[in-house]
Design a protein around this nucleic acid. Structure first.
Length: 441
DNA sequence: TCAAATGATTATCT
DNA sequence: AGATAATCATTTGA
């Protein structure tokens, strides 16, 4: 057949003047002697085109064929091409590609952050089950919920990916379909590659709008899941007694500077995590930050209402003191005096009503702790010794009851902030002998 | 059932 | 980045 696809190209040379495809009589203009006859010809053809839609399909096909075979067809087609190219260019110039949608970017980032899109973390639902099995044991309740969350997340992930794939496939199918259609149509009407390109981009835009909806609803689902499972405020678990004791012992034995270093936090977390399993499944919520939270809360609440914590402070201080004494009497032990695991288990203290036994020596030492550049391990000994001293009742006169256990580390501004650098959990290298002068008062 | 306790979060500061 | 202070949301105990 003579029906070649006529994909338009800008270099096809569709210019009016001297176009090789134009028959000579077309290039002579319309003013010739036989011009009226030609006009009549064109008028007939146009008339046929106009009425073609009113005809039945068979009739139309026949007409179409007749038109295709018409001797004027190549010339008319080229004119059409030229007109079209000009209009298409003007259309294309009007709408340039827009910048990436910020909303879409936000959704993409979130899906990536939540682990829905992006690289799979170990194999979907199978991984969730494996994780559940692996983390089984301590904190079964917690890890069960955790794995439940992961299973649900991987479910969402799976749905998201299958849907996305479906959309992509549909998009590709539709695109090829449209392209085939356009190619087919290019036999009968001029179609430029740019036009095809534009059509494809329109299709892609439509599909990406659909994808955006998918992403949006996936994000919503993840947020709901998160709030259901991971919102720590909703799922708060109190520490158990042992963990609280460990933390309190550290706090009160470092009362002058209750800012554990990262290593100290890690160690404390390790100690507590064994008994607590207070592990939050959030992405940035490690056991260390749990310790940080605890110390943050403790510092604030202690400072706010020191009186309320007096008894507790005394108890832990005494405990630590005894532990330190035991350690030193047993020779040079490497054990930590500041965070003894079994300090309370000796049962040798009955401090429940001991509050009024303690009298502060705080008024005697002023702010000397703040400037002292001693290690906080020593400081912990100082804290401890202060209590040991006060326990002897040596400084009982002239002090009011509400001064019983003043916050040694708290300065005039009510802050610990300028206290010496944080310490380690592990045992001090210096002995109690290196304690500075204020304890001897 | 309610208040207190408590772990986590958030805004703000340095 | 890490601290504080205020606040939220839940747990606990009377």
């Amino acid at each position: 057949m003579d029906e070649q696809p006529r994909l338009m190209h800008s270099h096809t040379g569709v210019g009016m003047a001297g176009h090789p495809g134009l028959p000579q009589h077309m290039q002579e203009g319309t003013g010739g002697t036989d011009g009226d006859g030609r006009k009549q010809d064109i008028g007939d053809i146009l008339q046929q085109i106009m009425t073609i839609t009113d005809q039945s399909l068979d009739e139309a096909q026949a007409r179409k064929h007749a038109l295709n075979c018409h001797r004027m067809k190549p010339a008319l087609f080229n004119v059409l091409c030229e007109i079209k190219e000009k209009t298409v260019l003007s259309i294309r110039g009007a709408q340039e590609e827009e910048p990436p949608d910020p909303q879409l970017m936000r959704l993409d980032n979130m899906l990536l952050a939540e682990g829905v899109s992006g690289p799979e973390k170990g194999g979907g639902s199978a991984a969730a089950a494996a994780a559940a099995a692996a983390s089984g044991g301590a904190g079964a309740d917690n890890s069960a919920e955790h794995s439940d969350y992961r299973a649900k997340l991987s479910q969402i992930r799976q749905i998201y990916h299958t849907e996305l794939e479906k959309y992509e496939q549909a998009c590709n199918e539709f695109t090829t379909h449209v392209m085939n259609l356009l190619r087919e149509q290019s036999r009968t009407r001029p179609i430029s590659p740019k036009e095809i390109e534009r059509m494809v981009s329109i299709i892609h835009r439509k599909f990406s709008a659909i994808q955006m909806q998918l992403k949006q609803s996936t994000c919503e689902a993840v947020m709901i899941l998160r709030s259901r499972f991971l919102d720590a405020r909703r799922k708060r678990r109190n520490f158990n007694k042992q963990a609280t004791e460990i933390l309190n012992e550290y706090f009160y034995s470092h009362l002058s500077n209750p800012y554990p270093s990262e290593e100290a936090k890690e160690e404390l977390a390790k100690k507590c995590a064994i008994t607590v399993a207070q592990v939050h499944p959030g992405p940035d919520c490690g056991s260390c930050s749990v310790v940080s939270n605890w110390f943050g809360n403790k510092r604030i609440r202690y400072k706010k209402n020191i009186g309320k914590f007096q008894e507790e402070a005394n108890m832990y201080a005494a405990r630590t003191a005894v532990n330190a004494a035991n350690a030193s009497s047993h020779g040079s032990q490497a054990n930590s005096p500041s965070t003894p695991n079994s300090a309370g288990s000796a049962g040798s203290f009955n401090m429940s009503n001991s509050g009024d036994l303690f009298m502060s020596v705080q008024s005697l030492n002023g702010d000397s702790y703040q400037g002292a550049q001693v290690g906080a391990n020593v400081q912990s000994q100082v804290d401890t010794l202060r209590h040991v001293i006060s326990q002897t009742g040596g400084y009982s006169e002239g002090l009011t009851a509400n001064q019983m256990y003043s916050p040694q580390g708290i300065n005039a501004n009510g802050g610990w902030q300028d206290a010496p650098t944080p310490s380690s959990v592990t045992s001090p290298t210096e002995g109690p002998g290196s304690v500075h002068s204020d304890t001897s008062n």
